[in-house]
């Protein structure tokens, strides 16, 4: 049986950029979707294989409204990865993204994997944020970057595969709890189901 790692992933980004759409698309038509309890589109899980491990993503949505920004640290503490979403058709949302990155660098967990998702790439004709800008920025902060379309299911799998690859493999000698990595009983059961 493959080892299961639970990875907490938090979603950040302005309201309306399609954070939860990306997750819904990712989790959709996944076979254990019905068994894993969810909280609407706010909390979802999905298990994907990665090398000789299984990665179970525990995806925490956050409220994108400006007034709730101060509550975000409660959500991203202990996260292994953060998916920061912007809308390629809204320059403002890219701006907000930069603020999130800054905050994570300062207050976020150490070694957090950051993935930038430029959503709504199906609307590239009204694009405001050039892909080049996003790539350059991502490179400067060492983050993954993809342009996605939740609507057309473009690059969604790739986004999470990218995250999986960035997660350092588990050190067999250390069941460390850094980065929200943990082996739980629940996860073992889930593992049995998929093997």
């Amino acid at each position: 049986m493959m080892a299961i790692r639970e990875l907490k992933v938090c979603l950040l980004g302005d309201t309306g950029v399609g954070k939860s759409s990306i997750v819904c698309r990712f989790v959709q038509d996944h076979f254990d979707h019905n068994i894993s309890p969810t909280i609407g589109a706010s909390f979802m899980t999905k298990t994907v294989p990665c090398g000789n491990e299984l990665h179970k993503f525990l995806i925490w949505d956050t409220a994108g409204q400006e007034r709730f920004h101060s509550l975000a640290p409660m959500y991203y503490r202990g996260s292994a990865a953060a998916v920061i979403v912007y809308d390629i058709t809204k320059q403002d949302s890219f701006h907000t993204l930069k603020k999130w990155v800054k905050e994570l660098k300062e207050h976020g967990p150490e070694n957090i994997v950051m993935a930038i998702a430029g959503n709504k790439c199906d609307l590239s004709d009204i694009r405001e944020v050039p892909l080049k800008d996003a790539k350059e920025y991502a490179e400067s902060i060492g983050a993954i970057v993809v342009e996605t379309s939740a609507k057309n299911a473009i690059n969604i799998e790739e986004l999470f595969q990218g995250i999986s690859r960035q997660i350092p493999p588990l050190d067999p000698h250390e069941n460390g709890n850094s980065g929200g990595i943990r082996l739980g009983t629940q996860s073992l059961q889930a593992g049995r189901r998929c093997c």
Partner: peptide, 19 residues
């Protein structure tokens, strides 16, 4: 063992309301 899981999320949500 619930850390990061559903219950943790719910409790965090409640705590954020409280805050």
């Amino acid at each position: 063992t619930h850390t990061g899981g559903l219950h943790d999320f719910l409790l965090t949500a409640l705590e954020s309301c409280y805050e």
